[in-house]
Amino acid sequence: MYRNLNSICLKYMIMAFVVKVPANICGQRNLAAFYGCRRKAFTTLGRERSMPSTIVSMSTTPIQHLEKPASGSKNIVLPIMVNDCTGKMGRAVINAAVSAGLNLVPVSFSCSEEAGQTVTINGKDIQLHGPFERENVLASVFEEYPNMIVVDYTVPDAVNDNAELYCKVGVPFVMGTTGGDRERLYKTVDDSKIYAVISPQMGKQVVAFLAAMEIMSEQFPGAFAGYSLQVMESHQASKLDTSGTAKAVISCFQKLGVSFDLDQIQQIRDPKLQIEMVGVPEEYLLGHAFHMYHLTSPDQTVSFEFQHNVCGRSIYAEGTVDAILFLGKKVQEKAEKRIYNMIDVLREGNMR
């Protein structure tokens, strides 16, 4: 997927990651203290290691306020419909989109229990509609806003049905929801010829890291042959599925020669363990993504640690807004390609 990226980019990214290690995690935890907690966490996977490590780390803290674009911005003519707007990601996307000057459509799909309600988010009143009226509502809204883009942050079980609805009505969409039958999802969109950005990971910087990993795995296959791998990922307790990002990184390590099965991933969903063992700041227990990958040589003398930690949801919301703007441009240009991912958005180079 990422083989066309310039290999010079890989060299720059790896050098930057290895040489520059942050002094704290999410502005809350001292790095040494964090790794002390993390090493204890890995005890359940294997014995603790005391040898020096090469650390590749990425940490982000949420940005509380996004600046609005200058007056006259073309973004304001682009309407968006956010499903599910009452969820944490839906709210974060709305806040980021409104701040960026996008036009929020006052309609959203939600569960049956919330159907008929009106909610106010970022000063905007949004009418909620349940599952049984979705097609008529979507068709009506799309007729009123013919250049609209739908943003989907619902639940894994709804991914395929929602995508089929968007394709049936003919509305372009950004699918940020993880899970579902991904093969079926891509086939549905491909058959319909609808424009879509589909990505289980909307954080631009994390996607760039994944791209670098993919380049490394393709250019240096077997570089870590014989090494053992330990993986720990921590997310809010409400996250039902295994991290798609962790799966992607593990796939790269497998190409690099590491033997590892997905059922070996240590998933942390217990808030108490997240604080004491992983080092997640308490204020971000309901919204975080901590990933740690530990490689050890066969003779136990060399280890590598890759880490990327996200507190809050702003990184995903901001990436989603970039994906919306990117997709709107492709629709307007009537681009030949119809299905995109966040790598395509990164390649475009027009991110805010």
Rank of each mutant, 00 (worst) to 15 (best):
K88E: 10
K334N: 14
D152M: 08
D191V: 05
D190K: 13
I315K: 04
C26N: 08
Q332V: 00
T188D: 00
L325W: 05
V137D: 03
E164L: 03
Q28K: 14
Y2W: 05
L295C: 08
Q267S: 11
D344I: 04
K329N: 12
K204L: 15
Q28F: 13
V197N: 10
I194S: 15
T245S: 12
K255P: 01
I315S: 14
G27K: 02
L66Y: 14
L138Y: 05
S71M: 11
T120K: 15
C26T: 08
L66F: 15
I250N: 00
N103E: 08
V93H: 11
A335M: 03
V77K: 12
N6M: 04
S303Q: 15
V231W: 02
M148G: 00
A96Y: 05
G72W: 09
Q28M: 07
R347L: 13
L66P: 01
G179A: 06
G176A: 12
L138F: 09
V331M: 10
I215H: 07
F253K: 05
Y284W: 15
D270L: 03
Y35M: 13
D152Y: 04
V82M: 08
L210H: 12
Y227K: 10
L45W: 08
L10V: 04
C85K: 02
L327P: 02
I80D: 01
R313G: 01
S314D: 15
L78H: 10
M15E: 13
G279R: 03
S243A: 05
T44K: 12
K334I: 00
V310C: 07
N309K: 05
M51K: 09
D344K: 06
M1W: 07
F290C: 05
A225F: 08
L5W: 09
N75R: 12
E336M: 06
S297H: 02
V174G: 03
M1P: 02
T120I: 14
D299Q: 05
A237G: 00
F132S: 13
K11P: 01
I343P: 00
C26L: 06
L240M: 11
N83S: 11
D261E: 14
L104K: 06
G226Q: 10
Q230F: 04
I8P: 00
Y186A: 02
P172Q: 08
V331I: 10
T44C: 07
A323I: 04
A317F: 02
M148Q: 00
I194Y: 02
P271T: 09
N4H: 08
V18Y: 14
Q307N: 13
F306M: 13
A158Y: 07
P62Y: 03
P62D: 12
C85A: 15
Q205D: 11
D190A: 09
T242E: 10
A139R: 15
V98Y: 06
Q264W: 06
S53R: 14
Y2A: 13
Q127N: 08
T44R: 13
I126Y: 08
I324M: 11
G312H: 02
L10Y: 15
G46I: 02
S238E: 11
F326D: 05
G257Y: 11
V159W: 02
D152E: 15
R39G: 01
P22V: 00
Y153S: 06
K68T: 09
K272Y: 07
D322V: 03
F142N: 09
N162W: 03
Y2M: 03
